[in-house]
């Protein structure tokens, strides 16, 4: 992490509570689980989606279908970054035609990732509706996009970094707020 830790926003319990609440809200807002398809956006959206799937199964007794979305090829900043991003597979095992697709990601910031995920989803099929669930909404939107389900609203400055760490990916489990180090020594 290229910054200095300022504060811990969520600990493991906090994450668990937030994700559990999101799982409940998804079922409630969609009046059940019939049409639900959970789609995790690589990378940290994927374990979050898996957890939501598990919670829903625990309290509804239904295993909701789960897919993985890689949005690399839909990014609008490809020509401005100086490495070639490695593309990964998109794997959505069921048809999303007429379904309620829940896109799941860790942080909502500018909205560009969500925009790319919407495009990617609609190239795969024509769902009845698409909703967005995020663990943290840190503001600073650059596009007219909002989340339907938010674990934690967190006002930030652009100089700050929100780091979500999940044990499946990072080993640790928390959400941290960092202050970006001065870029004096970087070109």
């Amino acid at each position: 992490m290229e910054g200095t830790i300022k504060s811990k926003i969520l600990d493991p319990d906090g994450i668990r509570r937030a994700v559990t609440r999101i799982a409940h809200e998804i079922v409630e807002k969609n009046k059940g689980t019939d049409k639900l398809v959970l789609v995790g956006i690589r990378r940290r959206g994927v374990p979050l989606a898996e957890r939501i799937q598990q919670y829903i199964e625990e309290f509804e007794g239904v295993k909701v279908p789960l897919g993985i979305l890689d949005i690399t090829l839909y990014r609008d900043d490809l020509s401005t970054i100086d490495i070639h991003p490695v593309v990964h597979e998109t794997d959505i095992p069921v048809s999303i035609e007429g379904k309620a697709v829940i896109l799941i990601d860790d942080v909502l910031y500018t909205g560009r990732t969500a925009r790319a995920a919407l495009d990617a989803t609609m190239d795969i099929g024509r769902p009845e509706r698409i909703q967005l669930a995020v663990l943290v909404d840190r503001g600073h939107r650059e596009l007219p996009i909002r989340a339907d389900f938010v674990g934690k609203n967190l006002p930030t400055s652009r100089r700050e970094i929100v780091a979500v760490r999940l044990k499946e990916v990072d080993g640790d489990e928390d959400v941290l707020l960092l202050e970006r180090d001065d870029d004096i020594n970087k070109s």
Binding site: L78, S79, T80, I81, D82, I83, H84, P85, V87
Partner: peptide
């Protein structure tokens, strides 16, 4: 994609 997907020449 690999050849022009990113801009490898940007310094």
């Amino acid at each position: 994609y690999l050849l022009i997907g990113g801009s490898g020449n940007v310094v």
